[in-house]
Nucleic acid binder design. Structure first.
Lengths: 159, 159
DNA sequence: TATTGTTATACTCTATAACTATA
DNA sequence: TATAGTTATAGAGTATAACAATA
């Protein structure tokens, strides 16, 4: 951070955004900062998880064991990146790699008891996090925002 | 990228998102990927600009000369990061540093003629980029989306 | 002594390429 | 020969700390 103003309001407050103010990319990037701060406070720090790590745990929690290939595909990570990620989580005892008996090349990534607990607890912490973010929005607006974001990315909205 | 399926559809298609599907942070991160791809296509590649570089040019275009301090504050960059950024843009001849006669410590960052041209042209290219992103949204939905994002971040909406 | 900006350095993240093992 | 996953290495990006110049 650059602004050390006690209030938190940056010195650049009166700088005009110009073209940026009409661009979705800009506003989405700003919103990403907001959500990242909330994530860090509610999940990142308390559970020692980075965003990808949390996402990975959520995928295993929802789907049961998955292959590295499935995880990499869903999280849009390259294979080597995923390997390092799995290494870290395995070292922390949150998951283990199980070889597939019918195909020795592939694996199943399985949550350990401890991993499952961290996954459950961090998923629960996402509730308060989301309510904090919703503070400036009505319930309907929150749903609308997610709907519009899904439309923008071309993905299907939840439920 | 991990999915090399010709269609582009990843192998992880049938993986459930679980908790993630209700989290704004997740959807905003996904949307950020979409907007980044659009940026890269319309502005990044054609003009050889990264997002911060484009943003910086837009700020100078809208405000005229600014100090590094103002730029760092608005773009949420640390001072050293901004120095390196300015170095690169200066080397490309897009801007120059002018010392402030009344305070030798501070500077004014000024667009060169060439920098102004690149700023103008890339600002113009943002139009088609935005229309491409809007393709899946109505005009009203686009405005609504920006409005909701501003509300989320606590910033004041444009206009 | 405080402030503006720079230099030096290191760390995190992620990618590409080369490799091992299974099939 | 193709696929799943790993190791090795390198490149971007950004941060913290120490520094120079001005006030």
């Amino acid at each position: 951070m650059t602004s050390d103003t006690p209030s938190g309001k940056a010195a650049g407050s009166q700088v005009s955004l110009g073209t940026l103010s009409g661009l979705m990319g800009y506003h989405i990037a700003q919103a990403a900062v907001t959500t990242y701060i909330a994530f860090d406070e509610h999940i990142g720090k308390p559970f020692g998880l980075r965003k990808v790590e949390f996402s990975l745990l959520m995928l295993l929690l929802a789907n049961g064991p998955l292959t590295p290939r499935q995880l990499a595909g869903t999280l849009t990570l390259t294979a080597p990146t995923l390997t390092l990620l799995l290494d870290r989580l395995q070292e922390r005892g949150l998951l283990r790699r199980e070889r597939n008996p019918s195909d020795g090349r592939s694996q199943h990534i399985v949550l350990t008891a401890r991993g499952r607990r961290v996954a459950d607890d961090s998923a629960a912490a996402a509730g308060p996090m989301e309510r904090g973010l919703q503070a400036r929005l009505s319930r309907a607006e929150h749903a609308m925002l997610i709907e519009l974001l899904c439309r923008l990315t071309g993905s299907t909205p939840p439920r």
